[in-house]
Amino acid sequence: MSDIITVKDLCLWYGSAQALKDININIPEHAITALIGPSGCGKSTFLKTLNRMNDLIPGVKITGEVRYAGQDIFAPGVDVNMLRKDIGMVFQKPNPFPMSVYDNIAYGPRTHGIKGKAKLDDIVERSLRDAAIWDEIKDRLKKNALGLSGGQQQRLCIARALAVEPQVLLMDEPTSALDPISTGKIEELASALKEKYTIVIVTHNMQQAVRISDQTAFFLLGELVEYGDTETIFSVPVDKRTEDYITGRFG
């Protein structure tokens, strides 16, 4: 498996507070990489660095190197909109636009210049099928997306992200606002999606990391403490701090 994202000596500051310290990590494609760690450890910050969503926060300073498919994503001249098209994101709280299900899915493709009803119809159906929600809402495509349940909204958001044909899907605690059944559906979905996509998922739920991820990275206080096969991390962690965290001694 080749690495789709490589990160070298990544540091990030919010003003004068350092949130990420010398992160080195390679993320393989067509796999699920879980980022775990206590609140405020920098895992979400790291995730948002990968599609440069941190650019939007004033006072952020970043050093080091992040390469996506071999390209430095911070190089001048990088089209950040194309980067975000390639590296999609699903947020913690389901955030469908206050418009119809159809328009939610079609938003991304339309943004990238796709016109024509037949084409968009195709994309909408394919995306909703990929997100395993087509059968549930195919009769409600014209209804407002805010009327869906939380779990359906989150799968809709996944479908919306898939509609622009990304390579990588970043998921920022996608199930933390959902009930267990919806959580199960999203986990199943994530496992199915890794055939086509690379997934990086931030999670607070260690069982979730065990259930679905291939690699796990443990963050603590802005540092990447340990990174490796999920099985290894959870059975024979090398670092004492990792062991303490996964056995529930803190966090």
């Binding site: 955030n95 636009f97 943004t111 990238h112 622009v164």
Partner: peptide, 14 residues
Amino acid sequence: PQEYEDASLALGAT
């Protein structure tokens, strides 16, 4: 809500 705008930007919209 900021989330709407984030979602749009994350899809690659300017």
